[in-house]
């Protein structure tokens, strides 16, 4: 399945792009993260949360192909 992942802030600095589309054959967010850690080793020691369809999800959440995002710590206000 083809999925689009958005990156923000510190995470976008590591991935050097704001979003990308990848061909993903796994099921869970954990598998997606394993793939991303191979591609971007520096991500491993960064603090971030995963959002799917604009809601935060646990690492074992099933990837449905909707909008995914890696969000570093919030700094609003």
């Amino acid at each position: 399945m083809t999925i689009t992942i958005k990156y923000f802030g510190l995470i976008a600095e590591v991935t050097k792009q704001n979003e990308e589309t990848i061909d993903f054959s796994g099921q869970s967010a954990t598998e997606l993260l394993e793939y991303l850690f191979l591609k971007y080793p520096d991500l491993k020691n960064k603090d971030f949360q995963v959002a799917q369809n604009q809601e935060l999800v646990a690492n074992d959440a099933i990837i449905t192909g909707q909008e995914l995002a890696l969000l570093p710590p919030f700094a609003g206000g």
Partner: peptide, 14 residues
């Protein structure tokens, strides 16, 4: 409201 904004809203500050 302010505490919720700080905790819940995905805003990033460089």
């Amino acid at each position: 409201i302010v505490e919720e904004i700080k905790a819940q809203v995905p805003v990033f500050g460089k």
